[in-house]
Amino acid sequence: MKMDRMLSIIMLLLDKKRVSAQELADKFEVSSRTIYRDIDTINMAGIPIHSTSGVGGGFEIMENYKVDQKVFSSADLSAIMLGLSSLSGMMQGNELTNALAKVKSFIPADQAKDIEVKSNQLSIDLSPWIGNKNIQPYLEIIKAAMQDNKLLSFEYSDTHGNKTTRTAEPYQLVLKNSHWYWQGYCLIRKDFRLFKVVRMTNLRMQEESFTARDYQKPQLDFDDILETIQITIKLRIHNAVMDQVLDYCAYENFTPDGADHYIVDFPFIENEYCYNILFSFGKHCECLEPSHIRAEMKRRVQNIAALYEN
């Protein structure tokens, strides 16, 4: 995994005077081009690495920036351990486990207790209670394909259930709102696409490699768009579903209505996703206004009831 590899590169450069690109490529079983990209990323992160060409050349951290293990504060190490621990619970494999072990090697004995306490103050568990059994093995396949620049083939179902066969170049895994996606260049659509992992079947990593192309990260912040399409509706809910509703709006949106109910100003977009959210609250939620949303809820309820009449 890229994060693990770059952390290991930094540690090697801290321990050694100079390391060649080929030596790093052989150690991490990647191409020299990948190593050069990692070095560029580390430089942009603020750790200046100097390269020397020719016989005996390689990479080294600039002498006036040379640091030792004390460069990491207890807060720094706690944050790194927390991030690696939360990911290792969701994405299996030796890379994250090894990275976590390496970070622990930075911990001075006199700070070990303090760092352990700090790293245990917050627990992040990204694994679902229940879910699609294919997600975790698919994540491993996607991760391996990104590591080796291998094409992925799969069948993909859109929101209308239409299934197509795709081949794509994988570039980035994305965890958004508890759902996994990956950004790739689709050879069928001739453009970048954001694929949702649960909509994929028959995922396979191909033997064929690809040359990485320049790409932009997918847009994941839709605040500006939401301002133009999002409306506020009024719900009356029972306190039995209060925790569920709080996943979508703040407590400031709640007004008590008797002993057991609340009136809630609820953010809403008129699409299937948001209607399904309202139905997830079941009989404990009533849409009061606007009238056309209330009427649409009634129509959908009647359609559901009609399924069971016979």
Results as ranks from 00 to 15, higher is better:
Arg5Leu: 06
Arg18Thr: 03
Glu29Arg: 11
Ser31Phe: 03
Ser31Gln: 02
Ser32Pro: 00
Arg33Ala: 13
Asp38Asn: 02
Asp40His: 06
Met44Ala: 13
Ile47Trp: 01
Pro48Gln: 02
Ile49Phe: 02
His50Glu: 11
Gly56Lys: 04
Ile61Gly: 05
Ser74Thr: 02
Ala79Glu: 06
Gln92His: 15
Leu96Val: 07
Thr97Tyr: 04
Asn98Ser: 14
Ala101Lys: 10
Ala109Lys: 10
Asp114Tyr: 14
Ser119Lys: 14
Ser123Glu: 09
Ile124Met: 08
Ile141Gly: 00
Lys143Asn: 13
Gln147Lys: 14
Asn149Cys: 10
Leu151Asp: 04
Phe154Val: 07
Tyr156Ala: 05
Thr159His: 13
Thr159Cys: 09
His160Thr: 15
His160Gly: 12
Thr164Ala: 03
Glu169Leu: 12
Leu175Ala: 08
Lys176Cys: 07
Tyr181Ala: 05
Gly184Asp: 04
Cys186Tyr: 01
Tyr215Pro: 02
Gln219Trp: 00
Asp221Thr: 06
Phe222Pro: 09
Phe222Cys: 08
Asp223Lys: 12
Leu226Asp: 12
Ile229Asp: 04
Ile237Leu: 05
Asn239Gly: 04
Asp243Lys: 13
Val245Thr: 10
Val245Lys: 10
Asp247Gln: 15
Ala250Arg: 12
Ala250Ile: 08
Ile263Val: 13
Phe266Asn: 07
Glu270Asp: 14
Tyr273Gln: 11
Phe281Tyr: 15
Gly282Met: 06
Glu286Gln: 15
His292Met: 03
His292Cys: 04
Val301Trp: 11
Ala306Met: 10
